[in-house]
Design a protein around this nucleic acid. Structure first.
Lengths: 167, 167
DNA sequence: TATTGTTATACTCTATAACTATA
DNA sequence: TATAGTTATAGAGTATAACAATA
C-alpha cells in the first residue's frame, strides 16, 4: 500500500532541521541486541587494527588459541568449541597450514579424522598475538574501569554459555 | 614452510581422545571480543526468531525505531546515527518503502535530501516490534537477573558511545 | 566546488547440500 | 549406515569508488 499519504505522520513536509543529538536515538539505547552489536563492532575494529600487520582475522586467532589449548584437537571438535560449521574450519586450517602456523596429522586409529597441531612458529606467534589481543581489548574499553571490564566479561560469558548449554 | 614437522608440538601423533570440556577453551573465555561476538550472535538468534514472521532484519528494525524517533530524518543523518555507510541506507529504505512501512519526502529547501517518515502501517508495526524485541532480549538473557541485564546494557553503551565520540 | 542520494561492484562471513573416504 | 572432512554454491552484510542532481 504505497498510497497511504494521508497518514498523520506525513502531515509534516519538511525534514528535521537540527541533527539528532542522542548517540543512538531513544529506544535504541535500551536495546540489548543493538548495544551488543555496536560494542562488538567497536571492539573488533580495535582488534583488527592490532592484528593488521599479522593478517590474522578474529576466527583465525580464536582457532590458534583453541589449538594451543587442545593440541591434536580434531576439526569436528574445533568446530563445536567455536560454534561454527565444519566447512568453515577447512579453509581456516588450510590458511594456517599454508602459512606454516598449524598442521594436520592424520589419526592412526580413525583415519577419517585429523589432529591439528601448532608448529613452533605457530606457537610463538600465538603467544605474541594473545598479548596483542589483551592490550587491544583494554584499548577498546578505555571507558571502563578494570572492575567494570571484568564485570562485562563475566556477564557476556553468562549470556552465551547459557545459550550453548540449552542447545 | 610446510616441512616443519620437527616442531615439539608434533611429537604427539594421536589427536586428543576426550572431548574438550570447557565451554570456550581456556584463554578464549577471557577475551572480551570473543565473548561479545558470541553473546551478540546468541541474542541476535533470538531476535531473528522473534522477527521471522514479520521478515524484519536487525538493521531494518533499528531504522524503523530511529525514524519513529526522528520523523523526517534525512538518509545521511540516519546513516550517521546507525553508524553505517550511506549506500546501505538506500536499499534499507527502498525495502521499507516497497512494503508501505516508510516513505521518502523530498525536502523543499534542499531538494537533494529526503526526509523519511513512517506510514500509519509502519508506526503500528514499529510499536508491535518494539515489544517483541524487548521480550526477545529478556528471553535471550534468562541467565541474568534484571539488575545484571541493566548493568550489561549500561556497560555496553559506555563502550560503544566512547568509540563514537572519539571518531 | 561540495553534498545527497544512488549505482555498481567486490569482498568477507556464513549456511547448506552434496560428495569422498573411511568406519 | 554413520561419521570426518571436503567441495561447491549461494546468500547476507559490508565497504569503496564513481556518478547524477542539486546546492
Amino acid at each position: 500500500m504505497t498510497t497511504s499519504k494521508k497518514s498523520t505522520s506525513v502531515q509534516q513536509v519538511e525534514p528535521e532541521e537540527k541533527e539528532p543529538t542522542s548517540v543512538a536515538g531513544l529506544v535504541l539505547e535500551n536495546r540489548l541486541g543493538y548495544a551488543l552489536r555496536r560494542a562488538q563492532l567497536s571492539v573488533f575494529k580495535h582488534f583488527n587494527e592490532a592484528m593488521q600487520e599479522y593478517e590474522i582475522r578474529p576466527a583465525q586467532f580464536s582457532s590458534l588459541v583453541v589449538i594451543e589449548g587442545y593440541p591434536g584437537i580434531t576439526q569436528t571438535n574445533l568446530a563445536k568449541i567455536l560454534d561454527i560449521d565444519p566447512p568453515r574450519i577447512v579453509s581456516l586450517i588450510n590458511n594456517l597450514e599454508e602459512r606454516g602456523l598449524a598442521l594436520r596429522v592424520r589419526c592412526k586409529r580413525d583415519r577419517r579424522s585429523h589432529g591439528i597441531f601448532l608448529s613452533k612458529k605457530g606457537e610463538a606467534l600465538t603467544e605474541q598475538l594473545k598479548e596483542l589481543a589483551e592490550q587491544s581489548d583494554i584499548n577498546a574499553t578505555q571507558a571502563l574501569s578494570e572492575i567494570e571490564r571484568r564485570q562485562l566479561l563475566s556477564l557476556l560469558v553468562k549470556v552465551y554459555a547459557a545459550d550453548t548449554i540449552e542447545e
